[in-house]
Amino acid sequence: MPASTVTPEEAFYNRRRFLRKLGLGLAGSALLPQGLAGATAGFPAKLNPKFDGAGLKSTDFDYVTSYNNFYEFSTDKGEVKKLANEGWETEPWSIQIGGLVENPFKIDVNGLIKKVGGVEERIYRFRCVEAWSMVVPWDGFPLKKLIELAQPDKNARYIKFTTFLDPKSAPGQRGRNIDWPYVESLTIEEANNDLAILATGVYGKPLPNQNGAPIRLVVPWKYGFKSIKSIVKIEFTRNRPRNTWQLLAPQEYGFYANVNPEVDHPRWSQASERIIGGGFFARQPTLPFNGYEKEVAHLYKGLNLRLHY
C-alpha cells in the first residue's frame, strides 16, 4: 500500500471525534469517504494540465509531510509533524482580508474555496533557501481570484500575509527569538502572476497541520520561506511590509527571495540543491527562478537581482 493512500493518523482521530459528535459510533465510519476530516476536505481537485509537472518526479508523501520548516512548532524539521498535531486546532478557520481594498471581508476557509470555484491540482517544484528541494502536488486556487474578490484600490501595491498566533498550541511561538506572528509579503504584480496560488491540500488531501493547514501561500519561483503557512490575515498596503526573515537576518534573506543559483547564501552556495528523498548523493543544479523563468522573469526586468536578493 503506497504511503499516499494511508489516512494520516491525525485525520483518523479527527474523524473519530467527528463521528462521536454525531453519535454514529464505529459502525458509521465505513460510510464516510476517505479524507473527510480537515477544514478543507471535500473539494476534489483536477490536475491543471498547464502545471502538470511534466518531467518531474513528485517527492513521496511521507517526505513532504515529515520534513517541514515550521518554526512556530520547532526549528527541528523532524519534530514539526509531531508538535503540530498535539491539539493545535485548524478547524474552523477563517481569514480576514482587508487594508486598501473596496471589499474587505472575513470568511471561513471552506466558504472561500466555494466562492472562488473550488481547487485544482498543480505540481510545482519547491526550493528551500537551505539548498534542498522537493516536487509537490498541491491543491489550491490562484491568488489572483482572491485579489479580484477584494478589489484593491489603486494605492495598493503590496500584499501582506500573516500567520496565526497561538503560543498555547504552538510551542515555537513561546520563544522570543522571532517576533511572532510570522509575516510575508508580495508585490501586487507577483501576487497576480499565474503561478501564485493559495494551497489547501497536498496529494489530494487537506493540508496536514505541519504543511500549513488549512491554507497557505505557494510561490514556487521563490525560496520556500516566502510561501507562508496557516494564513489568518491578508492585507493590501501601499508601503512594502518587511517579512519575518528579512527582519531577522537582512544580510541573508531579502524581500524578493527569488530562487537564484548565482547569488550565494553567506554560508552556502545556491548553485545546486539536495533532492529530498534522493539518498546520500542526490544533488541537482538549481534553476533560475526555480525553473519558472519564462513565467516570472519579466516581473523583475531592470532590477539588479544581486542587490535585490
Binding site: D62, Y63, T65, S66, Y67, K77, R274, G277, G279, F280
Partner: peptide, 11 residues
Amino acid sequence: AEASVLADPAK
C-alpha cells in the same frame, strides 16, 4: 527508516 532522517541522510 524515519522519513525526516531519510529525507536528507547526509545532512
